[in-house]
């Protein structure tokens, strides 16, 4: 079973791109499973189900969705394998920009869109910077020069990645992307695999449900901004 982790900022076009890839894979008569991870709510599973692929969804609620992802992905892979999927795709929304679902030796894809602003590639952490393939969407809305400038910004933070433009609506580029999926890592289980990058320790009192503001309520892993810095001159 070929397994790929797909992540990206909210509404960047992950589902649209995956749907276009599913169409191309189905034309090759492949059996596909999708697992969707989100925080509070998602209807993406319905869109996938409509395509006739196997779907599971997981909502992390109060947890960071990427932490929730790691605790569950191994059993999802087993599920996909037991159901004879030839491709298993996980979609997760990158919400905290510091966590990332990407796993070593598992093909990692980040979806980011041309409208998100020229500074965005710098702001996204390992989810973008450690991906093997970066898909840039919504190129239909901007000029080709702007697409090139945006792609060069992506290249700056992840120069080793394959960078592709895909249109999530018309599917332009999806065919080409699918041929990269055919080279994705072929696995049966995630046993023994490790994350590409550690996830931040979320261990302050607020992680544990604290809501009151004030020094006396802050315990655990707390860090303070330096408000004096640079104010001397």
């Amino acid at each position: 079973m070929r397994f790929l982790t797909i992540s990206g900022p909210p509404s960047s076009g992950k589902t649209s791109v995956i749907l276009r890839v599913i169409e191309a894979l189905q034309a090759r008569e492949k059996k596909i499973g999708v697992v969707k991870f989100d925080c509070l709510l998602t209807d993406d599973d319905k869109l996938y189900a409509k395509k006739g692929v196997l779907v599971k969804k997981g909502l992390s609620g109060a947890l960071c969705p990427d932490h929730y992802f790691v605790s569950n992905i191994e059993s999802c892979v087993t599920w996909g394998h037991e159901n004879n999927c030839e491709y298993l795709i996980s979609e997760s929304a990158g919400l905290c920009n510091r966590c990332s679902p990407h796993i070593k030796e598992i093909t990692a894809v980040c979806v980011i869109d041309n409208l998100s602003g020229i500074g965005t590639p710098r702001k996204i952490g390992p989810m973008l910077k450690s991906a093997d393939i970066v898909v840039i969407t919504k190129g239909d809305i901007v000029s080709q020069a702007e697409r090139e400038v945006f792609a060069s910004r992506v290249k700056q933070v992840n120069p080793g990645a394959i960078i592709m433009n895909v249109n999530g609506i018309t599917g332009q580029g999806a065919f080409e992307l699918t041929s990269l999926f055919e080279d994705a890592s072929d696995i049966e289980t995630l046993k023994g695999k490790v994350l590409r990058f550690s996830m931040p320790a979320a261990l302050c009192s607020y992680c544990l449900g604290e809501t009151r503001i004030g020094e006396e309520h802050q315990t655990g892993n707390i860090r303070k901004m330096d408000l004096q810095e640079g104010s001397a001159e």
Binding site: D140, I141, A145, V149, S152
Partner: peptide
């Protein structure tokens, strides 16, 4: 090099700044 149907811009830059940024990326 592709010149596509769409010629819109979303970046908040002047024509000169934009072209300079493109040139620098090349």
């Amino acid at each position: 090099a592709q010149l596509s149907q769409n010629m819109n811009f979303v970046m908040d830059l002047s024509a000169e700044e934009f072209i300079r940024m493109h040139a620098e990326s090349r």
